[in-house]
Design a protein around this nucleic acid. Structure first.
Lengths: 180, 180
DNA sequence: ATGGTTCGTTCCGTAAACGGAACGACCGGG
DNA sequence: CCCGGTCGTTCCGTTTACGGAACGAACCAT
């Protein structure tokens, strides 16, 4: 019953420590008591919605960042039946010279996904979060582990697959130059 | 102060009535009191996280469906007073070994943003969409143009600034290793 | 009419989330 | 050594969210 609260507690503590601010300081800027924040991070409290809004606001994150459910399926998932890759479009940027699509990408192990060539000049940029990804042109694929970033020209046939048994989680950025 | 609660209340009532179930029935299946649910829908209560989980579960919706405004503007921008950088959190990834925060970042020209060091091991990864960005450790900043990607260790003081008169648009990925 | 059912709200005692204060631990500076 | 400061936790009185019960209203069948 308190498992979820503990989840939120540890997630909250990591978010706070990632910013390098103290518990006292965060409590102060959030306008809540240190006891409240401490108990929240330790999972010994069942926070009120108002409290959650306060800390989320002080951290500068949306409330959903604190209450993210691990098992919740992403609503916008684009799933090609039987394919290795599932992608969720995060945002699209329309720039004068190009269009950018930022996606979150899952790659299931054991399958090699072939992708047809895109329009000329299109490049793909992947930042790997988890697992090891092998991706790129079919004749010259690249490999990237957690935290690494790879790019390639996508106007030729290219592939996505995992290296090893683990699922790959990454962000995929597709840059499509605007036809002049 | 209760504006947000009212928001959740009316959204909850809509979700319930869309399913054609009564307040009493939902309270029963959620295992909470009718008084609690009534007050929640009317916006006269400040619900506990546990209560929200119960209701969301009984409705068969993720918790974010109650908390997130579907048509809400991306009003999560984090603005440091008088600073050059405005960032919007796109997503948070919780991995066994690290936490990733993916942000969309704007950098205004003409100002140099100084950022204090983060926790040890934190790295930042930027993919530039538009403009030219100069960022990284204060003593060794990196430069990236559109489509380019740079990374650096963020556990030392670092800066963000533009090169040239144009605003910079980029994605910022912050990787915070989980303390072992 | 009348009894039985369910509706959503309000009342109320209890459990617990809240903030302030005190605590020991830790850290430079004098 | 001994401060003054900050750290995160714990203690404690106050506030309040909780569920059970009671309420009036609406509805239906007899």
């Amino acid at each position: 019953m308190d498992g979820r609260d503990t989840d939120i507690g540890s997630r909250l503590r990591r978010l706070r420590e990632a910013r390098g601010i103290s518990l006292s300081a965060l409590a102060r800027s959030a306008g809540i008591g240190k006891a409240t924040l401490s108990g929240l991070e330790l999972g010994t409290r069942n926070p009120t919605l108002e409290t959650l809004y306060s800390v989320a606001g002080a951290l500068g994150v949306p409330l959903t960042a604190l209450v993210l459910e691990p098992g919740a399926p992403p609503a916008e998932a684009v799933r090609v039946p039987g394919a290795a890759v599932t992608a969720t479009l995060l945002e699209v940027f329309e720039e004068p010279t190009a269009t950018f699509e930022l996606l979150r990408m899952h790659v299931r192990p054991g399958v090699v996904q072939h992708s047809p060539p895109h329009a000329p000049g299109v490049t793909e940029h992947v930042t790997v979060y988890a697992g090891v990804l092998r991706a790129g042109p079919v004749d010259a694929p690249l490999v990237a582990g957690p935290g690494e970033h790879i790019s390639w020209q996508a106007d030729v046939p290219h592939i996505y697959s995992t290296v090893g048994p683990d699922e790959v989680l990454a962000t995929l950025l597709i840059r499509s130059p605007r036809p002049a």
